[in-house]
Structures are given as structure tokens and as C-alpha cells.
Write a protein that binds this DNA or RNA. Structure first.
Length: 574
RNA sequence: GGACGGGUGGCCUAGCCUGGAUAUGGCGGCAGCCUCCUAAGCUGCAAGCCGAGGGUUCGAAUCCCUCCCCGUUCGCCA
């Protein structure tokens, strides 16, 4: 189904072409744009045709405007400053937008199921410690993208790739099984991930200072690589305990992953071995004197002094990216679109992966979505050095701050209700503030920004939603009506314009992964709604009461859908 | 040194792909608005050489070139 805006653009195109013909300029090149200034709904700049037509842009615009008889959705075509400006009939805008929202409800913004399977891999942090805010962008960006794609109509699966292979988890496992609990620093909370990371830190310290420990860990790693089932299951069990802790944190910020896939699986099922075999046979493969195998990727746009991508060690064991190849081949079988949310440190690895896939004869590539790490004002975060702000601590702080806020302004709510709302607000503030900025932009973590509850913030959206809820509750029963002749205030028109843009925002998000468009859009809707609220009476109006309440109802639906996409609760009061 | 990403009022940020009309919004600052639907709100004001310099164009925050600053990366780690 064509959207309102597509239909309007089509009318503008037809009208423009007919007008060009009538002034003897058929076939002239032109562009239709959505003006940033609020002069019109669509505009055609007449500068580029000026030279060919040997006329001033201003005159062209005027001639074209005169040649157009507004009809259909178009209510006016006017010339201004060399632009041909088109305005949509607000009555049609009103009627179609509000009817569609009422009809679609919580599906508004999407297009209905499209049957396309998409796999969104996100989070996938090494199971060696709790999630810290440096990496918190990953689950939040990934989950938001997945939610937007679900709304849009995709069949989405989210997936966590658990790195249960390699030195890091082996060190952790050795520490957990060999260091007496009294020898490690006390954990700051009881969650398993916090309890276990102390052993990881201690094991790292011991390994650095004690050659004997180093040898024990090396031995464990050798047995792991050799396929010792006892060691493998020990490592897996430790990683599982860590994952359980991480899941609790993710659950608190409304992130739930559909599938946990263990890296070791691709060694056990032989698919990694197949990948190695095929890579060795390719013409790009080479072998070092000691037996390590590599691909030379200088023909694949990878520049620099070292274009070699090593895929097996001298002893024949595989490396992370080699196993990642097997993993991606598996994902390609399970989904039509494969998306990886990755830290910017994975860029080269991802590029090597894509080149190797090509060498394997695979014509598909994952869509990588990269984000920059969040740092602290004093520098980079580091789990091992303890320079770190844990996501759990950020959540606690945000929720307790939200609790203080609500207690200071409400006296009528039960303790339980306030606690519940505080959690919704605190978590919402965190998710909003993280997803708000474009992923590739580097962020410096500041408590005052992370806990912002005013202006361009999560609570601002939630507050606007509660306002709508509160009005609807006070209104009681009413007869919904989308009669556009009753909705003529400029604030009403501006609000509906904002509401009508939702699906084009979702499209942009699902097509290019630009998740930060969602909070920006939500802010725009909430802001338009608050302005409407401040200047247009609703409950006390007579003639337009049903229509205004319907507009409030539609706004509530859109805000609710936006909040759901952002993984934020939509409270009815706060 | 190479590759990739970022640089926009005091602070944070949108716009950049697809060049167009007065550069988006927020924080902070100043001045107003609750006898009326929740003031986590609304209105107004001050604040910008869009990192620097060239180029292309009728027109550049946006495209091209050079340079500067910040981040990431250049492991037989994951």
C-alpha cells in the first residue's frame, strides 16, 4: 500500500511534469525535496533548470506555479524565492493519518509481515566479566534495531555468540576452580558475573607473576584445544554461569536474546574444519615455514604492511575469525539478512571475514553495524584495571534517582507502585541516552548526561505518554472521530504531520541501521504533543472534544510504539 | 607510517549518503508561565568563522584535494 507521503509526492511529480511541459520545458531535470524550513510539505528548487531555460529561477517558479491547478491532495502550489512550494491538504492528512493509526494500533509504523528472516547478532561480550558501560551500546543498539525491524514486518531472531573458546575463558575457568575464594577481593554484589570476575582478575595477576600458574593455564589451554571433553565442559560450565549473570543485567534493561550460540559448536560439528580445507585450496592461500596458513588479501582492498590473514596456527588449530566464518555460513542458512552489531575494534576482522567469504565462493555478506566505545573522562575503561563503570551500577543509580524524583512530586502512590515506575523511568533514561547518539560517534561517559531526565530524554517521552493516558482516563467514554473539519488548529496539524512520518523513520532505521533516528523522532512527536497540550484545550472543549480526544488517543499509540521500539516502558502515570 | 570513523554556540547533539530557502534539538545561562487536561512541561532571549585551507558549483556543514586534532586498528588474541 502506498503511503500518504508517497501518494502526495506522486501528485507533485505529475503536476510538476505537466507544468514543465506547458511552459515548454518538458524533460527538464528537477528534484523534489522535503524543505527543512517550514514553508511547505514538498518543494522543487528551480535553480538547476535556470541555465538550460535561460530564465531566472524566480521566474521559472512563478510560471510553474501559475500553470498548476491544485487538485487532489494538493491544496496549493506557490512560488517563493526560486522554489516551487507544495502544500498538502491538511484535511486529507488528518483523515488518512488518524484512520490508519486507529486501524493499525500497535502495528502502526510497520508494513505488515514481509516474510524476510533477519538475524541480528548483538552483545556477544566475552564471558569474562560483567557488562560495563563502555560496551553497553551494543545490546541497546542491537535490541533497538531488532525491535524496529519486528515492527516493520521482518521475522527477527536475535542472537548472542558466546566466545567459549580461547585463552580468556580458560584463564577464568582455571581461576574459578583453583583459587580459594578467600584469596580474591570481595565482589561488590552477589550476581554471578560480579562474583566470578574477581577470580578472573586474580588469575590474570597470578599468571603474570607466577610461571607455575602460567604453565598450568597453558596446559589447560592445550588440553582444551586437543578436544579434552572434561576441560571443554568445565570451561563451558563457567561461561554459562557468567552468561547467567549477564542475562540478569540484560533483562533489567529489557533486552532478551532469542538464541545463544556457542562458538565451540563450530569446532565440534566439523564445519570449521571444512572452512579450513576450502581456504587452503584457494589461490590466495599461503603457508609459513612453520606450518601456519594464511590468505593474502591484498587484492581485496585491505592495504597496509600486512595483508595476511592467518587462519590456522602453526599447530593447525584455528583462530577466532576462522570459526566466525563457519558461524556466518550457518547464519546465512538461517536468515536472508544477517546483521552484526560490533565494536569498532572489529572492523579489520569483519573486513577479513568478508574477503574470506568471497574466497569461499559465498556471495553473501553480513551487514556490520559498528559503534565507538564509551570512555570515561579519565580515559578508556578496562575490566582488568578496574577502571570501569558497570551497567548494573548505572541502572541502580538511575532507578534510585528516578525514585527520588517521583517521591518528590507524588504523594498518592503506593511504595510498590513508585518502585515500579522508578524502574521504568530509570531504565528508559539509560536506554534513550545511549541510543540517542549516532553509533560511530565516540562518547565520554558522564553521570549527569547518562541520568538526564529533562528535555531530550527518555522520561520526556514517557511523561508525554502519561499525559495522553491521563487525559484519556479522565475523558471516560467518547466516540472516536477523525472529522478533519474539527481539527484545524496549527498545533493539531503540526502534531499529525509528525505522527504521519513514523513509518518513513522506521524504514530508514531498518534499511540503514540508523537507530538514533528513533529517539529523535520520538522527541519530535512528544514535543509537538506538549505544544498542542499547552495551547489547545481538550477535555473542556465542546464541539471538537471527540476529535481532539481521538488525536490524543492516536498520539498515545504512536508514543507507545516508539517507546516499545526503544525497549522502554510506556507508563500510564509517573 | 597505512587503513577506517569522529570534529557543528560554554557543553552534548541532528543534518552529511541523495548539495539548495533563516543550520536541528537538548543541557547550562537569563526572563516569563500552575484558581484550567500531571511544570519530568510550555513561551521568549542571549550564544555559531559547521576543525583549518584550497577546489567544483548559480549555490557547500553536505561533494573533491591537502593539512590539523581525537578515537580504533595494523597478533599464529578474542
Amino acid at each position: 500500500m502506498m503511503s500518504l507521503h508517497d501518494d502526495f509526492e506522486k501528485e507533485v511529480r505529475n503536476a510538476t511534469e505537466t507544468a514543465l511541459e506547458s511552459i515548454g520545458a518538458a524533460g527538464a531535470e528537477y528534484r523534489i525535496e522535503r524543505p527543512s524550513a517550514g514553508n511547505a510539505d514538498l518543494a522543487v528548487p528551480c535553480f538547476q533548470m535556470s541555465k538550460a531555460l535561460k530564465k531566472a529561477p524566480k521566474d521559472i517558479a512563478e510560471e510553474l506555479a501559475a500553470a498548476i491547478e491544485p487538485a487532489g491532495m494538493m491544496i496549493s502550489a506557490e512560488a517563493l524565492n526560486g522554489y516551487l512550494n507544495f502544500t498538502m491538504d491538511p484535511r486529507i492528512l488528518m483523515r488518512r493519518t488518524l484512520d490508519e493509526i486507529l486501524e493499525s494500533g500497535d502495528r502502526y509504523g510497520g508494513h505488515g509481515s514481509n516474510g524476510i528472516r533477519v538475524n541480528v547478532e548483538h552483545t556477544s561480550t566475552n564471558p569474562t566479566g560483567p557488562i560495563h558501560v563502555g560496551r553497553a551500546r551494543n545490546p541497546i543498539i542491537g535490541d533497538t534495531l531488532a525491535r524496529a525491524m519486528r515492527l516493520s514486518g521482518y521475522d527477527v531472531t536475535t542472537e548472542y555468540y558466546v566466545n567459549d573458546v580461547g585463552k580468556q575463558v580458560v584463564i577464568l575457568t582455571w581461576g574459578v576452580n583453583n583459587i580459594p575464594p578467600e584469596d580474591v577481593e570481595e565482589a561488590d554484589r552477589e550476581k554471578t558475573d560480579h562474583a566470578l570476575v574477581a577470580f578472573y582478575r586474580a588469575a590474570n595477576r597470578m599468571m603474570e607473576s607466577d610461571p607455575e600458574v602460567q604453565e598450568k593455564i597453558a596446559d589447560l589451554l592445550r588440553r582444551f584445544e586437543a578436544g579434552d571433553n572434561g576441560v571443554i565442559s568445565e570451561v563451558r560450565e563457567t561461561a554459562q554461569r557468567m552468561i547467567n549473570g549477564l542475562k540478569e543485567t540484560l533483562d533489567k534493561i529489557n533486552v532478551e536474546l532469542d538464541v545463544y550460540t556457542w562458538e565451540s559448536k563450530y569446532i565440534a560439528d566439523g564445519t570449521t574444519k571444512n572452512v579450513v580445507k576450502q581456504l587452503r585450496e584457494s589461490k590466495y592461500a599461503g603457508r609459513e615455514d612453520d606450518g601456519a596458513c594464511y590468505l593474502d588479501l591484498k587484492d581485496f582492498g585491505i592495504k597496509g604492511k600486512n595483508t595476511k590473514f592467518t587462519f590456522t596456527r602453526a599447530d593447525g588449530t584455528t583462530l577466532y575469525t576462522t570459526r566466525d566464518l563457519a558461524y556466518h555460513l550457518d547464519k546465512f542458512r538461517r536468515a536472508e539478512r544477517v546483521i552484526d552489531v560490533l565494536g569498532e575494534d572489529q572492523k579489520l576482522g569483519s573486513q577479513q571475514l568478508c574477503s574470506a567469504l568471497e574466497i569461499l565462493g559465498c556471495d553473501r555478506k553480513p551487514e556490520a553495524l559498528f559503534y565507538s566505545f564509551v570512555s570515561l573522562p579519565e580515559g578508556k575503561m578496562s575490566t582488568r584495571k578496574g577502571i570501569v563503570v558497570y551497567l548494573d551500577d548505572l541502572i541502580d543509580e538511575a532507578v534510585s534517582r528516578a525514585y527520588e524524583e517521583i517521591r518528590s512530586r507524588r504523594t498518592d502512590l503506593s511504595e510498590e507502585r513508585m518502585t515500579e515506575i522508578a524502574s521504568t523511568i530509570g531504565v528508559g533514561a539509560i536506554r534513550y541516552n545511549i541510543v540517542r547518539v549516532q553509533p560511530e560517534k565516540q562518547m565520554v561517559f558522564k553521570w549527569e548526561d547518562a541520568l538526564n531526565f529533562d528535555g531530550n530524554s527518555g522520561p520526556f517521552l514517557q511523561y508525554s505518554h502519561t499525559r495522553a493516558c491521563s487525559m484519556l482516563k479522565k475523558a471516560g467514554e467518547f466516540k472516536p472521530s477523525t472529522d478533519p473539519s474539527k481539527l484545524t488548529d496549527e498545533y493539531e496539524v503540526a502534531l499529525v504531520k509528525a505522527l504521519s512520518r513514523f513509518s518513513s523513520v522506521i524504514d530508514e532505521v531498518t534499511e540503514y541501521g540508523r537507530v538514533h533516528m528513533i529517539p529523535a523522532y520520538g522527541h519530535e512527536v512528544a514535543s509537538a504533543f506538549n505544544q498542542f497540550y499547552a495551547s489547545v484545550p481538550v477535555l473542556s472543549s465542546d464541539d471538537e472534544r471527540n476529535e481532539r480526544l481521538t488525536l490524543v488517543m492516536c498520539t498515545r499509540i504512536v508514543l507507545h510504539n516508539v517507546l516499545t521500539c526503544l525497549g522502554m516502558g510506556a507508563p500510564e502515570e509517573m
